[in-house]
Amino acid sequence: MKITRDNLCSSIVKEIAEISGENVAGCYQCGKCTAACPVNTVMDILPHQVLRFLQLGLVEALLNCNTIWICASCFTCAGRCPRGVDLPGIMEALRLILLRKRGFSRIKAGVIPRVADKGMPEQALVSAFRKYTR
């Protein structure tokens, strides 16, 4: 795999930085995010690897992974990150880029009261909004 400055500073890398407001260079790959993640067992790219891929400019793999959709936006990773990197914000940026491309929302407002009534955790609800609406 060839690494070039163009890949490292591509427009999509800049877009992710702009949406999330995060500098991925801040991450030093300790793996705390992955260690703390409650759903890491079913992710195809682990949370710390998401950051590493971004540092290397490998955005394509991230747009095709299941991780960004499995992420529950529980913020455990961000809460424990020693470098103060907001990984959920970055996950959200990745989702937004795809959603903006796709151009529609998969969640219907009418569904919300029904699932909410069944005692769905608030965090999951927030996550669902982040994941499935524009």
């Binding site: 060839k2 590493r52 490998l58």
Partner: peptide, 11 residues
């Protein structure tokens, strides 16, 4: 890059 598991080439 052993963190991502990628063999790299840099000019």
């Amino acid at each position: 890059d052993s963190l991502s598991g990628h063999a790299l080439e840099i000019e």
